[in-house]
Amino acid sequence: MALYSEKVMDHFRNPRNVGVIEDADGVGEVGNAKCGDIMKMYLKIDNDIITDVKFETFGCGSAIASSSMATELIKGKPVSEAMTLTNKAVAEALDGLPDYKMHCSVLAEEAIRSALKDYERKQRGEDVPGEEQHDEDKDENRFCCCAADTAGE
């Protein structure tokens, strides 16, 4: 049995929307290096429509695939719709993730939401110094929850 679905492997091997948007309207970063997963999302928004989205991810195969799929799911969508993106939708679009990798889809959902919140803050004129907004209010270890069996050796 393969570790991941064909869809996960496809998005892992050929991730969509990889990169950076220098003049992004919203940037969000979640996760931390200690846990081994960081996702950063960049949004370009025009008339409340997400016209472009890029991501950078440090993480395992499913983290990269989840980021890629999440960007596909929100590209071209209104902000209000993107706000409702759930981790479940990301995982389902990938034909499922192993249980102990579901946190990767949660991370993708949170990264999108964080970028959207950053956009909204900027819209309200609460521009924060620096280009990005890291969600510090989140418990940093929340997504650090790999729980597979210990590899046997």
Binding site: C35, G59, C145, C146, A148, A151
Partner: peptide, 12 residues
């Protein structure tokens, strides 16, 4: 090959 990352060791 193999790795000692959390995601391959399967722990936190």
């Amino acid at each position: 090959a193999s790795s000692g990352s959390a995601c391959t060791s399967g722990s936190l």
